[in-house]
Design a protein around this nucleic acid. Structure first.
Lengths: 137, 137
DNA sequence: CTTGACCCCGTACCTGGGTACAGGGATTAG
DNA sequence: CTAATCCCTGTACCCAGGTACGGGGTCAAG
């Protein structure tokens, strides 16, 4: 069980030193013991924990949710239900955002197409579509 | 062409008074003339302009982009090409975000499914999947 | 004439997730 | 021995897009 300096940990996880300190302040990784001169000496599993944080972040979990997942991880038993609940909530959220964006993409797509079709007229169909009531400023 | 107080404008557009002032500071709506006592007296077309801002925001345009669209709107001629360019860029952006989210949703969906299938074991498949040692989700 | 709703300005604050100094001490390679 | 890298703390700042607050002036109704 080697001890790692903050820079080493950061390099291994692929994040910045400042970010590691930030995560420590935020309680996402335990405050490690210090050397005589005050340097942080992280145990191996701090690296695992920080990788967990990164992976979860890639899945769109907020730091708050990640904190919950980490808490649940070290608690025994029925925690799986709680974890599942968080994942389901996140999934619903992601799907809602996809639906929103898809609606927006559709409108934008139509605008661009209209623009292509109408290339020679003076009026811009895109602006007209966003502001139907304003014809000429 | 009536003149409207800021509160009236805000009500008509469906935003807050503070937001109207913020948009004025940001140059999204012109600074209106004032009454003798310093009240803003917005012309009718300020309401239209602010509605334009809101609609464009719903389509995911940033305030910077909306400023550009508004500038283009009052300029004649070939502005349509510029408008189209902004819309195309925004569309590409939206589609990229959809792709990202879809990937995330897929992973989350698999995790929840795994959790359902594995309800009686002690290990939580979700946590295992996020954990670094099982890094191929 | 007073009450309450409205308006003014300027500035500070919020969210999330970090990033960037400034001003020091520690460690290590040459 | 010295210079280059580390590391420490604390504070401030970044992004967008607002939101809130404090301390005041104004306007219409009753």
């Amino acid at each position: 069980m080697a001890a790692h300096t903050i820079g080493e940990v950061a390099r291994r996880v692929g994040i910045g030193v400042e970010t590691v300190r930030f995560y420590e302040r935020e309680g996402l990784v335990a405050s490690p013991p210090r050397s005589a001169s005050g340097y942080r000496l992280f145990p191996d599993d701090a690296v695992d924990r920080l990788r967990f944080v990164r992976r979860a972040k890639e899945l769109g979990f907020t730091l708050d949710e990640i904190r919950s997942l980490l808490d649940l991880r070290v608690r025994p038993g029925a925690a799986c239900d709680d974890v599942r609940e968080i994942a389901v909530a996140r999934l619903a959220d992601v799907e809602a955002r996809i639906a929103d964006l898809r609606r927006i993409a559709e409108v934008l797509g139509r605008l661009v197409t209209a623009c292509d079709a109408d290339r020679d007229t003076a009026d811009c169909p895109i602006l007209d579509a966003i502001a139907p009531e304003v014809r000429d400023a």
